[in-house]
């Protein structure tokens, strides 16, 4: 008897969304099967990797990744242009770090100007991220959403403590929105319900269940993402069908393995290889758990992940 490959099919489907403008616009999600199991269903879009940049020089990034951008990171427009021209970035994630009260406390108006400058100069689809300060993000992201009006960006992150104003701004300026909760699938579902109850279309939503680095809680993130995907596909739970975000870079480029020098830990080998591998493995794990959109920092790690996606698609 010939071997028949067992196949699982699901009633549910991951929602797809696009962001960006014109022929640069990109789409994510849309699959009705678990990650990369294209023999079981449809996988219309490949996972997307966005290059992370900041609105100020990345003084707190470890040297391995900071040095890559040392000639361009003084100015976000230059940095974004480098990502487009040299790295061929399909999307860029601009983090408004300097708006954080402890990191410069720049105003929402300043942030809006930065957004306008970047959007005017670089036509790559843009993800606009706050500084992850609940109160400040509520001001900054509202101004940023207005500044980016008409550019079909992704803005984030809306959290339990600030989602109302951010959702209203994303709604008013027709952006996509990242909803973030802290490593708890039930809270992730609850936040998505609350956001859609405000009249925000679930087809414009992205779920960020919070990332973590290899060795620092990756298995929790992996498990939550996997269960979100299964709830969306197997239980056909509409609140769990938005695409998933893995905000990998910021969780990787601070752990000991990406920072500790070779003289300090000679057994760990080359710092550069080690830290690039750390981001690569963390991001690849997220892909296998069901992530549709990754935010990453090191070009070599991004290259590794793109190669893996090529092989798995």
């Amino acid at each position: 008897m010939a071997y028949v490959v067992p196949k699982e099919s699901f009633n549910g489907k991951v929602l797809s969304l696009d962001f960006g403008k014109g022929d640069k616009a990109v789409s994510i999600g849309g699959e009705n099967t678990l990650p990369f199991l294209s023999f079981e269903g449809e996988v219309p879009n490949r996972p997307l990797v966005a290059c992370e940049i900041q609105d100020c020089p990345p003084d707190d990034w470890p040297d391995t990744v900071k040095n890559v951008y040392k000639d361009v990171s003084a100015d976000p427009v230059t940095w974004a242009g480098y990502c487009r021209d040299e790295l061929k970035a399909k999307a860029i994630a601009l983090r408004l770090v300097s708006t954080h009260p402890d990191r410069g406390d720049r105003s929402a108006e300043d942030a809006a100007k930065t957004i306008k400058d970047v959007l005017a100069a670089v036509d790559v689809p843009l993800i606009i991220l706050g500084s992850n300060h609940i109160e400040k993000d509520a001001d900054v992201l509202v101004a940023a959403a207005g500044a980016a009006s008409g550019y079909n960006c992704i803005i984030g992150k809306a959290q339990e403590g600030n989602y109302k104003t951010i959702v209203a701004a994303a709604l008013a300026h027709n952006h996509k929105l990242i909803a973030m909760s802290e490593l708890d699938i039930n809270l992730a579902k609850q936040l998505n319900i609350l956001i859609t109850q405000m009249g925000f279309d679930k087809e414009k939503l992205i779920t960020d269940p919070m990332c973590s680095g290899l060795g620092y809680g990756l298995e929790y993130t992996y498990s939550v993402m996997e269960r979100i995907r299964l709830a969306g596909l197997a239980q056909n739970d509409p609140t769990m069908q938005p695409p998933i975000l893995g905000d990998v870079g910021m969780y990787v480029w601070k752990v000991k393995e990406t920072v500790a020098s070779e003289p300090d830990v000679p057994d760990w080998g080359s710092l550069e290889n080690r830290s690039i591998a750390w981001e690569t493995i963390t991001a690849t794990s997220m892909l296998l758990a069901g992530t549709n959109l990754l935010i990453m920092r090191h070009p070599a790690a991004i290259g590794n992940v793109e190669k893996t996606i090529d092989e798995l698609m």
Binding site: I185, N186, L187, K189, Q190, I193, L194, Q197, R227, A231, Q235, D237, P238, T239, M240
Partner: peptide
């Protein structure tokens, strides 16, 4: 276990 819990599950 047919539905994922969230505080607002009754509203869905």
């Amino acid at each position: 276990g047919n539905t994922l819990y969230a505080h607002s599950y009754l509203e869905m």
